[in-house]
């Protein structure tokens, strides 16, 4: 047999084949769509004329709960190999290791952005009747609307990558998921209940700040008026959550590169 070397496109093909075959990932992606659309539909029923809702805000309203699904998606992608001991076989084939993590990041980003786009289309569809009744059309010529819709897809993709980074770093699904939920959702809610200069400042720099990408201008102004922390522009908040994903993936890469794939690692 002729010797053919390991290349990144080959590692990518291998990881894509593996990840798309994982049943948990398929179900998680499906539940992301169901939760986003279901919550958006449910919340739209409570929207009242003059209540501050816009067409775009109704369409992305399912983002908070859907975030949990995208975190689970990333954590599963990052821990599946270690959970099943398959990591041994994978790193025997790719002993330089880092191409595997890079390939997982690419596959996770594609899977999460497609899932988020489908979730968004489903949310737009199920809220259509209610938006019509309220006279809140979805105007794609409006820059704010485009930012919020694109922001939904970008934020959820970045959140999935935060999950992947934590999963690949901690290697245990339960621990990584709990850490992710605390860091992205719980801590944010806890600090929101205890406003002040310090909690508001911390809050502004947590990964959950990426939701500013999909929050309307009026709502952002109201939030900023109530917060004594720094006020990030929506695009800066988007960069912030991307930064979190990058730092966590870099930490996972460092552990992967320097450490052992131990025999007790499951």
């Amino acid at each position: 047999m002729t010797s053919s070397p390991v290349t990144f496109p080959r590692v990518l093909a291998s990881e894509a084949g593996k990840m798309t075959g994982v049943r948990t990932l398929r179900w998680t992606a499906l539940s992301c769509v169901a939760v986003a659309a279901g919550t958006a539909f449910g919340l739209s029923l409570f929207a009242r004329p003059g209540g501050g809702a816009t067409g775009a805000s109704l369409a992305v309203a399912g983002h908070v709960l859907a975030q949990l699904g995208f975190l689970a998606l990333g954590v599963t992608a990052g821990t599946e190999e270690f959970r099943t001991k398959l990591a041994h076989v994978t790193f025997l084939a790719v002993p330089r290791r880092l191409p595997v993590l890079a390939a997982q990041a690419v596959v996770t980003a594609v899977l999460a952005s497609v899932t988020a786009a489908v979730a968004l289309v489903a949310s737009i569809a199920v809220t259509a009747a209610r938006r019509d009744a309220l006279g809140l059309p979805l105007n794609l010529a409006d820059a704010e609307t485009v930012r919020m819709l694109a922001g939904f897809v970008l934020h959820q993709t970045a959140i999935a990558l935060v999950g992947l980074g934590l999963g690949a770093l901690l290697r245990r699904p339960a621990g990584a998921f709990v850490t992710a939920v605390v860091g992205v959702v719980v801590l944010d809610q806890f600090l929101a209940m205890n406003p002040g200069r310090f909690p508001d400042t911390v809050r502004a720099f947590l990964p959950g700040a990426g939701t500013r990408l999909l929050t309307g201008d009026d709502r952002l102004a109201a939030l900023d008026a109530a917060s004594s922390g720094p006020h990030l522009e929506p695009w800066a908040a988007g960069l912030l959550v991307a930064g979190w994903a990058t730092v966590l993936l870099a930490a996972a890469a460092t552990r992967l590169r320097r450490g052992d794939i131990a025999s007790w690692e499951k």
């Binding site: 590692v11 994982v22 025997l92 790719v94 025999s263």
Partner: peptide, 28 residues
């Protein structure tokens, strides 16, 4: 060629897909 642990497989994946995933990394 290495075999360290017969349990280093994804339980939800078929034997064929398991070997194909390994093969893809080398273009086998």
């Amino acid at each position: 060629g290495t075999m360290l642990d017969a349990r280093s497989v994804h339980p939800g994946r078929s034997a064929f897909r398991h070997l194909m995933a390994m093969a893809r990394t080398h273009g086998i």
